[in-house]
Write a protein that binds this DNA or RNA. Structure first.
Lengths: 342, 342
DNA sequence: TGTTAGCACTCATATAGCTCGAGTGCTAAT
DNA sequence: ATTAGCACTCGAGCTATATGAGTGCTAACA
């Protein structure tokens, strides 16, 4: 069956109405909309066609129609672009903060309070991070501190307990050893052979060396591990279809136990390249059982240093896709700037 | 009116029953309990008295009785001690982790999964932390790294951008300057006068000094700020009286926006000294509107280094106080050990 | 041939009436 | 002081009924 211009118009109207009210939309409601001058009967016929095409559905006989997942998908893919929305500026700006962590947290929070949806932000991930700088210092008699700087300027610390303090020149020698060997190497470059050579040179302090290497490994793994920040999880209670105890529990769990999100988001990034960086997942397009009643919109951001991460907004299927997409577009652009100017 | 031994017994039975079932308890149920050999009629009379005393209440006429806040309070204060519970061992043990942060996170998680309640853990707080060790290093041409170690072995890092690299001996000199002046000082000791003197000695590098000092201030403030870790927030859905959308939203919010918790917990610590370190808050004993239907049990832990923090368990009023208190007691003892042996 | 008015039909929701039973308070007997 | 007995209360759960939003279909109309 052909999807005529008129059908599109009606579909669009149904979706818009449903986004606003969350209630099934009837033919009469549509017929009252100003730019559609048709009787409810005609609309009914058209709606019947749209239903046949799988774009809308009735929750039960003789109820109004709501968009199906396919309908939303069509809306997001086609209708939204056609109706380019009027400009709208974001209100709350991001403050400059010093720590990356605090910044990500803040991005999530601001986004959540601006959109009234749940949000998530992943920390930027760098492909194949390398050691930039290592330094050992004697903090007190029993403690050495290993400071490890990764090439994206992430800093990690590792305390190393020792039986007795090292002499000043011993610390110096270790530092030279560590830096000359390790600088510029990534995790996979640091193999057993290399370590053996280093141990030989370290002599009596081989055990300290081991601790440092362990620290480096931990640091790199840490950088490699996707950190996810979420905010506004309780916003879901603003949408009755998500707030029912049965569904809310599961959904909140996914939001809090962030593993599932990471997975979703990792997929997102793979798909992304071709597009504008914005991905929309509707209901069952996500694997997670808990997210069946939600939609997720993700955007990829990219930092100068080469790191990439994802920002996502989680809301009901009837979320305001237009606004969300726009907000994300704005934000990803700004993010790079904020991260670098800090 | 006198609270006879028999009344206590009945009250105890009512509470135990209600804790288990969450349903109002009737006189007949009590009369069936093996260690109370009275007819339901007699129980009814006693219950009527208990109600008059405000220890129990009826949700509506001709329903059974449930404990009032006062009743719970009495239970926790008096009845629980009298019936010393049989020994019970905790199942899941804590793994050793290296970072304090990860450890606290883990404590919260394990506790939540063991108890099926929501949990919170605050990071240990030290009174008046002092600088133990400062070190500047040149990471690359444009970046200096300031490493600041606080006397509880917390480490903070601060990147400092510079226009041109410092010479090796300049860095060395700065390090001597910083350490000789700042070591052992707490935040309040570092006043403007001191900073002025230091600036004089730093000469051309005064601006670097400023950055370092700023970094130290930030680090100290950071240590001072109570970090709160929560887990198992969604456990509240296991208790219908908390899982209703209206109440759940607010409650989850308090659990996620941790400010409110911090406040509660700070109070807890003040009160604590006298007791065993365990505090129980029931319903309206907490300020927070959102927590009216909950109870909070907190325990203070103390580390060798002098830091103290709080562990809390948040559940419905009918939570298993006995188990919770026991679990917390066990844990606080163990915690010190784990933290120190790490 | 496309559009519309009209009408019978459907079905979720809301409300009212009903029964059921758990639980109470009171009284009188033990 | 305790208990058996009984009338009474009231929420939970069920059924029946009314309401009304919304549909599909048919027939008339432009």
């Amino acid at each position: 069956m052909e999807l005529t211009e008129r059908k599109k118009k009606i579909l669009h109207s149904i979706i818009m109405n449903y986004l606003e009210t969350g209630e099934p939309v009837g033919s009469r409601t549509i017929s009252k909309s100003p730019d559609i001058k048709l009787s409810s009967a005609t609309i009914r016929n058209e709606m019947s066609d749209l239903e046949e095409m799988g774009l809308i559905l009735q929750p039960y006989t003789s109820a109004g129609r709501i968009p199906s997942d396919l309908g939303y998908r069509f809306y997001v893919d086609q209708l939204m672009q056609e109706k380019e929305a009027e400009e709208e500026k974001r209100e709350a700006l991001l403050e400059k903060v010093d720590r990356m962590e605090a910044m990500l947290e803040q991005v999530a929070t601001v986004l959540a309070s601006n959109t009234n949806y749940a949000t998530m932000v992943t920390a930027p991930q760098y492909k194949n991070p390398a050691v930039k700088f290592v330094q050992l210092s004697q903090v007190d008699e029993r403690n050495l501190l290993a400071v490890i700087v990764i090439d994206n300027n992430t800093v990690k610390n590792q305390m190393i307990h020792v039986m007795e303090p090292l002499k000043n020149d011993e610390v110096l020698k270790m530092n030279v050893l560590l830096n000359s060997f390790l600088q510029g190497l990534s995790l996979r470059d640091i193999n057993l052979e290399l370590i053996d050579t280093m141990r030989e040179q370290a002599g009596v302090h081989a055990n300290i060396l081991d601790s440092v290497i362990k620290g480096i490994a931990a640091a790199m793994r840490d950088v490699d591990e996707r950190q996810v920040y979420t905010s506004g999880a309780t916003n879901i209670f603003k949408y009755p279809e998500l707030g029912k105890p049965e569904t809310a529990a599961g959904l909140l769990n996914t939001l809090v136990e962030k593993h599932a999100l990471t997975k979703l988001v990792d997929e997102a990034e793979e798909f992304n390249n071709e597009h504008t960086g914005i991905q929309v997942y509707i209901g069952n397009e996500m694997r997670s059982q808990n997210m069946q009643d939600c939609s997720l919109v993700t955007a990829t951001y990219e930092l100068e240093g080469g790191g990439t991460g994802t920002i996502g907004i989680i809301g009901p299927k009837r979320m305001n896709y237009q606004k969300v997409v726009k907000t994300l577009k704005n934000l990803t652009g700004e993010l790079d700037e904020i991260f670098n100017n800090r």
